[in-house]
Amino acid sequence: MSFALAWMAGLLALCLDLFVREAFMLDAWSPDFLAVVLLWLGTTRSWTQGAIIATTLGAVADAFAGSPLGMHMFHGLLLFYLSRTVSSRVLFQGFVGRLLLGLVGGLASLFLLTLIGRLVLADARLAVRITHLILPRILVVVAAVPFAFPIMDRLEALFVRQPERDLM
């Protein structure tokens, strides 16, 4: 149940991402909801469960983005591991803590995607092309994380019985 819920949350985030981008033409300022969910998975899910969810959501993101299959899978997996690793060592609680996690996650997300894109597409100018995205994307993720995490925590508490929660 917990697995399905998290996966559905990820899918919803992807749909929302697509919807917002298409409906409001925000371009650089469109929020990266998938990155937020992946960061949240890192703080709430086990290594195994989170990795599966991140990889499969990455596959869906590839389908939605029209990118080579595996690109967002890699990205999702790496971002989840990063979030999981960081949050297992540092306690990101409270508004400021989540802001910090959002900052780290946003930066890492963009960096990882650029790195993978550079490797896969063999495009040396990719990093230059996305320079203008850095600030807005990171700001949006930073702003979204402190608000999205409590909401998702509450939703999960609402739908999932306590013993089912994977507290690893």
Partner: peptide
């Protein structure tokens, strides 16, 4: 599990290519 998923991602990324650029896995997911 992590290694398996990384491998799966790598396989998809580097070997799932067809004539049109999208391999069978990619087409299924799409």
């Amino acid at each position: 599990m992590g290694i398996l998923l990384f491998t799966l991602s790598g396989v998809c990324l580097f070997f799932d290519h067809g004539d049109t650029g999208a391999g069978p896995m990619s087409r299924i997911v799409g």
